[in-house]
Design a binder for these strands. Structure first.
Lengths: 150, 150
DNA sequence: TCTATTACCTATAATCCCGCTAGGAAATGG
DNA sequence: CCATTTCCTAGCGGGATTATAGGTAATAGA
């Protein structure tokens, strides 16, 4: 299960993608009005996404957040990784800095690692293949929702 | 990330598959000796797997646990579902009894649900396509570990 | 029948981290 | 100047996860 953070974050990014206009910022309160979420919590989430470089921000009136890149250039994988960390079901199945699980000493002799890697690979494939533009497009294009590209 | 419960459970099932002989039982202590894990914790995990019908048990000397079906007939999906629940990253993406997330009222207008379903589908595909026999076979067959079938 | 072994059951402790709140400082536009 | 909005730090409550403890019941073998 993804955390609430990832869910709120993804939906907020979808709103920002949906209303994406260069040089235009959208406030936290504005996002909360569209996708109901605890305001202060969402604020901390957006801060995290900004620090990761996925969002830009501006303070003061007519300030807020906007995507650092166009919606087509930001994948769901980037958002989820920023908020929930690596996809791998076990730490030994990560591509970067793999570490044995508690009570395991040898990754090469682990019963489950190759299968955990496979799960990781498939999750990565799906989420890296989809962008924020895909999230937002669903309600605007003529194609039905089931037409998600691989 | 899978829980410790799922990891210990999967590894224990792998041991039971590896040493699978009909009518032969393997004790918790025996499993712990092979795959290091907190004994009492593992005991509760195996109980859960037995209640789900994946394991049989016998008490007393030469008692323990054994698979309720042959290793080829038990998928990784069954084990993980028993210990960690559904695969779906959000409750609205479950196949059985889908429920909106906090702060969401309409599944059909959710930005992320179709994509969460896709993640779920891929995880299910991988884990339903692999059995305990695959876990155990890695160290016995001539084919290298990377030869995991889809 | 006795004893050692083992699963079974209930209760509870420990820890962690997720989900969220509080409150103010700093920028910015009108 | 003032309202707006992000930025920053700090913290906390509760529920899930990760176990531990200790006794009861079944079973095999001597």
């Amino acid at each position: 299960m993804f955390s609430s953070k990832a869910r709120y974050g993804l939906k907020a990014m979808a709103v920002l993608a949906d209303r994406y206009v260069e040089e235009s910022f959208i406030s936290v309160d504005d996002i909360v009005a569209t996708e109901h979420a605890p305001a202060k919590f969402l604020e901390s989430i957006l801060t995290q996404l900004r620090k990761q470089g996925l969002l830009l921000s501006r303070r003061g009136p007519s300030g807020g957040y906007r995507l650092a890149r166009s919606p087509e250039e930001i994948t769901l994988a980037e958002v989820v990784r920023t908020l929930d960390g690596a996809f791998a079901p076990t730490t030994c199945a990560r591509t970067r800095n793999p570490i044995c699980c508690e009570g395991c000493d040898d990754m090469e002799r682990c019963y489950i690692r190759p299968f955990m890697r496979r799960v990781r690979d498939e999750m990565a494939r799906v989420l890296e293949g989809q962008t924020l533009a895909n999230l937002a497009d669903r309600f605007h294009s003529d194609s039905p929702a089931s037409d998600i590209k691989l």
